[in-house]
Each structure stands twice: as C-alpha cells, then as structure tokens.
C-alpha cells in the first residue's frame, strides 16, 4: 500500500490538473444559461470532467491528493465571489471521496469511480446556496412588488425533491464520467506512457 507523503511533483500535478478540471467544468457550465437545464449541470460536468480526474487519480495515488484538488476548487469559487456554503459543501464531498479512495487503496477502479462520483457532488453546492437563499429571494421579490404566486412558480424549481434529483444526477454523471475516463486511460494515456 502506498501511503507516502505528497511530494513537490504531486503538488504541481494537483495545480495543473486543477486548472484543466476548472476550465472543463466551466465549459460545462455554459449549459446553465439555458433555464431549467442548470439542474442537469452537475451531471454534465461529471461526464465531461471524468477523463481529467481519472487520469489525475492514476497519476497521484497518494492520500489527500484528490481532497486538496477539490478544496482548491472550492477556494477558487469563493475568491470569485460565491458564499461559504459552497466551501462547507466541498469539505463534506471531498472528505467522503477521500475516504472512498482510501478504502480502495488509491488504485482500485471501483472505489476510484465511486470516489469521483462523490467528488462530483460538490458542484451541487452552487444550487445549494440558491436553495438556502430562497427566503431572501422571496423577501426581495416581495419588496419589489412581485406577486407571491409568481415567486412560487420560480421557487418550485429549487425544492427538496428536485435537489435530491440533482444529487442523484451528479452521482450518475460521475459514474459515467469515470467509465469514459477509464476507456481513455486504456486507449490513450497508458499507451502514451504518461501514467
């Protein structure tokens, strides 16, 4: 079992892959501009970013690697002006993902796949903060003279039930992404000798 400390090489790899992950995640975010589809954002992001994170997990088979990568993503979205809700969410998602990786001793595909699925749920944090700020939306809209029924229609989109669906979507997207990632590892990266 590899339980080495993270070396400089690994830390640099984390930084490099964080950039690639982030860019792809944001590209997936374009979907959010279309109303209602933002509920599918975590699923799509999982499918698209699976390749990057699976390659990352193959490169850094050490404790805390994935956790730090996720944590940094959280810190960046905070610096870009999100709320602390997302940071809390990141910490929870990453802790579970890290735990799953440890169970698989950092190299079992099954556990890495589950780990990525959980990792992927941090993106739900974006919706979570809207969900938690619901009261403010209602309040704000009321002061602006928008009718209650109108607001309810909007808010309906972000309720417990749909939130659960979003989480399930995130996990399914993560699993699909992990399988795509596995296929790419086999088809390209192992042959190319970069893992």
């Amino acid at each position: 079992m590899k339980t080495e400390k993270l070396r400089i090489k690994d830390l640099v790899t984390i930084g490099v892959f964080a950039v690639i992950y982030f860019v792809l995640m944001f590209l997936a975010g374009i979907i959010g501009i279309v109303p209602i589809l933002y509920l599918a954002y975590p699923t799509l992001a999982g499918i698209i970013t699976g390749i990057v994170i699976m390659l990352f997990m193959a490169k850094v088979q050490k404790p805390w690697g994935l956790f730090i990568l996720g944590l940094i993503c959280g810190l960046i979205v905070i610096a870009m002006g999100n709320t602390y809700v997302i940071l809390a969410h990141v910490l929870i998602s990453m802790a579970i993902a890290e735990f799953l990786r440890k169970k698989g001793e950092y190299k079992s595909f099954r556990y890495n796949m589950l780990s990525f699925a959980l990792f992927n749920t941090w993106i739900c944090g974006f919706l979570m903060q809207i969900f938690l700020a619901k009261d403010k939306v209602i309040e704000m809209a009321e002061t602006r003279g928008m009718g209650h029924d109108y607001i309810m229609k909007l808010i309906k989109l972000v309720n417990y039930r749909s939130l659960i669906l979003v989480y399930i979507g995130a996990i399914i997207g993560g699993i699909i992404g992990a399988y795509i990632g596995k296929a790419f590892l086999k088809k390209h990266f192992e042959k190319a000798g970069i893992v």
């Binding site: 993270l6 640099v12 984390i14 990568l69 940094i72």
Partner: peptide, 18 residues
C-alpha cells in the same frame, strides 16, 4: 500549508500555458 499554497501557485503559473 504548503500542500495547498504550492498547487495554487502552480495554477497561476500553468493557466497561461494552458
């Protein structure tokens, strides 16, 4: 801690290359 600050520094360094 370095484990976090080094990857962040690398991100700034790598982004233009990317």
């Amino acid at each position: 801690p370095q484990n976090i600050s080094i990857p962040i520094a690398v991100m700034f360094r790598f982004f233009p290359s990317f």
